[in-house]
């Protein structure tokens, strides 16, 4: 497959997920608003209707239904059920591990792709994006096939006492798969924009690889890294399809928060489902606020190089 011809050589392909928002600084020039007033009013009204109906109304509905029976009932729904408590605990365990794995990978991949030229670099960049095009259900399925007790690897692991499927390791793997590209694709353009000059200078002054990373590369890319971690974490905590398939849906054992929401919904326990959903919604809103706060820092000019006058 001639994928390498399909993407630009820079390796910094525009991410479809977090695009820096060019509209945030306001309309560019006043005369651009010279459309007739009725066009303006109609389009603004339509936009408010679209975003309000598609996004605003569901957000309001989540909190309305969660809090419909008062704060006491809300708190009871969240904390009284041991299966719900375990789901919160499991999500808080699984997501950070998956994010951590992808951070280590993202840093390694970004360093190699942004700083060096080598054969297969373009293909590597394309392959990193691959998980975004795979259905979450398929992402879960591949791990079921790999680790099912009837498969070669799963059989061997079972004989040696390792349970991957229907257990936290499977949840971590499926989550790591669906959130795979987030950190790497944020860091590659950030590292490319900073350029290697400072690192080369430090190297020529005798810095070790370790010093280079902790004192120059990491501080320079910290906002990009934080941005990637936040997006990766939001997806990791909210992932449904992939973990649904590998979890085996064992209540109190392998249900994460989103899976628990679905189970409560199936049990017609709608208030509890919305209660837990409201926690996930809050997480999403916090993520978006953090995103809005970090984005301006990503567009800041990189700090001046060491050797500049």
């Amino acid at each position: 497959m001639a994928v390498e011809t399909l993407i630009p050589a820079s390796g910094g392909r525009q991410p479809p997920v977090p695009v820096p928002d060019p509209g945030a600084d306001g309309p560019r020039s006043p005369d651009r608003a010279a459309d007739p007033w009725y066009v303006r009013y109609a389009l603004v009204g339509l936009t408010l209707l679209i975003v309000g109906g598609l996004v605003g109304l569901p957000l309001v509905a989540v909190f309305h239904h969660a809090l419909a029976n008062g704060l006491g009932a809300y708190w009871h729904n969240l904390t009284a059920d041991p299966d719900t408590r375990h789901a919160v605990f499991l999500t808080l365990m699984v997501a950070p591990v998956a994010v951590g794995l992808n951070v280590i990978f993202g840093i390694a991949a970004a360093w190699v792709i942004a700083r060096f030229r080598f054969p297969g670099r373009t293909i590597l960049t394309t392959l990193i994006d691959l998980p975004f095009s795979v259905s979450p259900v398929v992402a879960g399925l591949v791990f079921v096939l790999l680790f099912s007790p009837t498969g070669p690897l799963g059989g061997w692991l079972r004989d040696n006492g390792f349970q991957v499927l229907f257990a936290p390791p499977g949840l971590v793997l499926a989550t790591a798969f669906v959130t795979f590209p987030f950190v790497a694709r944020e860091l590659i353009p950030v590292l490319e924009a900073i350029g290697p000059e400072e690192e080369l200078a430090a190297r020529s002054l005798g810095a070790s690889g370790w010093e280079l990373f902790w004192r120059i590369t990491l501080p320079n890319m910290k906002w990009g890294l934080l941005y990637g971690v936040i997006l990766c974490n939001a997806r990791a905590m909210g992932e449904f399809g992939a973990v649904y398939v590998v979890s085996g849906r064992i209540g109190g054992r392998t249900d994460t928060m989103p899976l628990r929401v679905e189970k409560l919904f199936q049990e017609y326990n709608t208030p509890a489902a919305f209660g837990l959903a409201s926690v996930l919604t809050l997480l999403a809103l916090v993520t978006l606020v953090a995103k809005v706060l970090i984005e301006p820092r990503l567009r800041e000019k990189p700090p001046p190089s060491v050797g500049e006058p």
Binding site: G26, G56, P58, A234, V261
Partner: peptide, 26 residues
């Protein structure tokens, strides 16, 4: 305008299970 602009990203951040739950109920 800034709020509307930020709200556009909600579907990327909101877990799909929450979206399904709330749309099914609405």
């Amino acid at each position: 305008r800034r709020l509307v602009d930020a709200l556009v990203d909600v579907p990327l951040a909101l877990p799909t299970a929450v979206a399904g739950l709330v749309y099914a109920s609405l």
